[in-house]
Simulated assay, not measured.
Amino acid sequence: MPELSVVIPTLNRGKLFHDTARQVLQQHFGDFDFWVIDQSDAEGRAANEALLAELNDPRLRYVHVARKGLPNARNEALARIDCRCVLFLDDDVILLHPDLLEAHVRAFGDPKVGGVTGRIVERSVRPNVAYVAAHLSPGGRTLTNLWGSEPQALLGLKGANMSYRMEAVHQVGGFDRNYTGTALLEDTDYSWRVHQAGWTLWYEPRAELIHLSALTGGVRVEDELRGEKWRFRSTAYFVRKHRGLPGVAKFAATFGAIALARAARWRDPSAVTTLLAAAQEGLAAFEAGPDEGIPAILTG
């Protein structure tokens, strides 16, 4: 059993993913296996398979899955790995230190730590609070700042650079597939469940990378309205799931104002109806129940 399994879900990212994969294999820490969960189309799949054949590294494991969706890809990995901790990386990152993997593993030296996130330098997103954070405000706005220089506890992890102790994974189960589309907040949801189960979430700045936030591939959408629709849906679902009806009331006030502001900026009054309908979809998804199962056929 390796100490660590590194998992990268990928979807039509081409050279960006190939560069990231090479960097993982160049890390100083050696006690890991490396799982590629590929959801790419035929052309992208062929290119990824060719890369792995070229690399010819015994630590590599490759799985192609037909069902798209970031939470599903993570669960497909969880169904297969056998390790002490698992590290999820995005397929469009640049590792800034050859000891990034070791920094994640060392953080689990504290037996209370169930999840770790590293320092993330975002290409397109800037911190919006002065303290280290990766969670939601009472009204549902995303609070983010993973640029800090000091290790510390926090309330959420970010999926581009996050790891979990497998004991915590076995306790809380899989990622929730109800975060569809851009899958916004699927990482926030999972880390909050780990936190609620009694584990400490930890920020380790030595595990540092750049997140390129590629404009195509992965879960990106180019249309701003579509992106906001997924944001409204995911946030409504998260708030209803974890904060109940009082949380929904705060969300409604905050995101109602956001919908009006977006409609004014886009000069499109119908955007209000579109965005609020997306929020209703999120609330309806909660009523249907979470979809957090790890594929049983693979875990038996």
Rank of each mutant, 00 (worst) to 15 (best):
V86Q: 03
T180A: 14
A134Y: 02
E102G: 15
L89N: 03
Q152F: 09
A103V: 11
H104K: 11
R123M: 10
G109D: 12
L157Q: 09
W147M: 14
I120K: 01
K112D: 15
G159V: 02
D92C: 01
L100E: 03
A160T: 13
T182N: 14
Q171K: 15
G181Y: 10
L184H: 11
A134C: 14
V116F: 05
Q152T: 15
M162H: 02
G181Q: 09
G114K: 01
E102A: 11
L143I: 06
K158R: 15
S124R: 15
V121Q: 04
N145H: 05
D91A: 15
V121I: 08
V116W: 02
L89A: 07
V172R: 04
N128A: 12
T142L: 14
C83R: 12
M166N: 00
M166P: 00
S163V: 13
V129H: 04
V121L: 06
S124I: 07
S124K: 14
P138D: 13
Y164D: 05
T182V: 13
R126K: 15
K112V: 13
G114N: 03
I120S: 02
T188M: 03
Y190N: 08
A134H: 12
L185Q: 04
C85S: 05
Q171C: 10
V169S: 05
V86A: 05
V86E: 08
V169T: 03
F108S: 06
V105S: 06
R123V: 08
T144F: 12
V86L: 03
V125M: 09
V169L: 04
L96I: 02
I94L: 10
D176E: 09
G140Y: 00
V129D: 07
D90H: 08
A183E: 03
G139N: 13
E122F: 14
L95S: 02
V113T: 14
R106S: 06
A107D: 09
E186A: 08
A107W: 08
A168C: 04
T142H: 07
Y179R: 12
G139P: 07
I94T: 11
K158Y: 11
A183K: 05
V113G: 04
V132Q: 12
P151H: 11
T180K: 07
G140S: 02
A160F: 04
P127D: 15
H104P: 07
L143P: 05
K158V: 09
K112M: 12
R84D: 12
F88R: 11
F88D: 00
V116I: 14
D187T: 08
L95D: 09
E167Y: 03
N161Q: 14
G114H: 01
L87E: 00
K158P: 03
E122S: 08
R177Y: 02
P138C: 08
G118T: 05
G140C: 04
L136S: 10
K158Q: 13
R126C: 04
Y131S: 13
R141C: 11
G109N: 11
G173S: 10
L95T: 01
A160P: 01
L155H: 06
Y179I: 06
Q152V: 09
L155Y: 03
A130H: 11
E122I: 01
L101E: 09
T142A: 14
H135F: 05
H97E: 10
D99G: 04
G114V: 01
A183V: 06
M162C: 14
G139V: 13
F108A: 10
K158I: 15
E102M: 05
G174V: 00
